[in-house]
Amino acid sequence: MTQQHRLRGIFLASVAAMLWGISGVAASSLFTLNSRVTALWLSEIRMISAGLILLIIARIVGAQPLKIWRQKSTAIRIVSYGLLGMIPVQLCYFEAVKYGNAPIATIIQFLGPFIISLYFLFFKRITPTRPEAVGMIMAFFGTLLIVTHGHLNSLAISPVVLFWGGLSAIGVATNTLIPRPLLPKFGALSVTGWGLLVAGIFLNIFGPFWQVAVHVDGPAIGLLMYIIIFGTVIPFLMFAHALADILPTTASLLDAFEPLAATVFSVTFLNVQLTSYDFFGGALIILAVMALSLNGHKMLHFLRHLGMSEN
């Protein structure tokens, strides 16, 4: 791998993470601009549109997206991926943004890698290493600062935000673990495209987006297009290409640009007020995830083993 390829991978992964972070800010703006827009409606539109686009791209580049449905085991897994992975990581995140703000929602969601570490600990009996243990302690205190602002007898953020944000962090874990065995066989485009589409179709059973009387004008359409194209499709493609040039551990470190971008854009353009506790707590969580990523060889080894054992 040349230095030029490595720099290209770092650039693509960094920009992808920033675009994901800004999509939360765009969603927050859309919720403020149009009170009729709900997290459910936005998630349905985003997942169905982005899923279809990714599947079309997969077909154009020569993949065979329909092959994933030919075996019962892979069909069940892709449905599980959509329902248990995509829905919490998309819908629950937007709910946290709607009831709170993009920086706090993104930072809480950023705890996802520690959910994976806890999964390893309790279900696979893989004990954390020293850097992982230190990272968990840092993440705990960072979350505590954000949630309490130093006052342990009261909450500084709404329990609703904490609830949805916590579910979105769990979604990051399931979104990582469930589709892993499918990726080598069917490719990231097909797997992600079907996961999004399955999730979007399932949510429409409970609240069809076309039954919601949402009037979208020019600014709302622009924000919606950004969330679908620049906040979902393009960053996914960029991140997938980045993984061809850099290690997954490096890519995980660059994910830190997501909460940073959400914070900078929210404070600059939406006048979101964050306290020193929020900034310091967020910094602790970001550093904790970096510590976990730097020691990510154990996680990668487990994911490879998981993929082989479930094929």
Rank of each mutant, 00 (worst) to 15 (best):
Q3G: 12
R6P: 05
L7M: 12
L12E: 10
A17G: 09
G21F: 00
S23E: 08
G24K: 03
N34E: 12
R36Q: 15
V37M: 11
L40D: 11
S43W: 07
S49R: 07
A50T: 05
V61A: 06
S73D: 11
V89T: 13
I107G: 00
L121I: 06
K124L: 12
R125S: 14
T129S: 15
T129N: 09
G142E: 02
T143C: 11
S154T: 15
S158W: 09
L162C: 04
F163Y: 14
L167G: 02
A169P: 03
L182Y: 04
W194I: 01
L196S: 05
L196M: 15
W210N: 02
W210S: 05
H215V: 12
H215N: 11
Y226F: 15
Y226H: 02
F230D: 03
P235R: 04
M238A: 10
A240Q: 15
A242W: 03
A244G: 11
D245N: 13
D255E: 14
P259W: 00
L260C: 07
A262V: 04
S266L: 04
N271F: 15
V272G: 01
L274D: 00
T275N: 09
S276H: 13
Y277I: 03
L284S: 00
L287S: 10
M290W: 08
S293Y: 00
R304T: 12
L306R: 10
S309N: 14
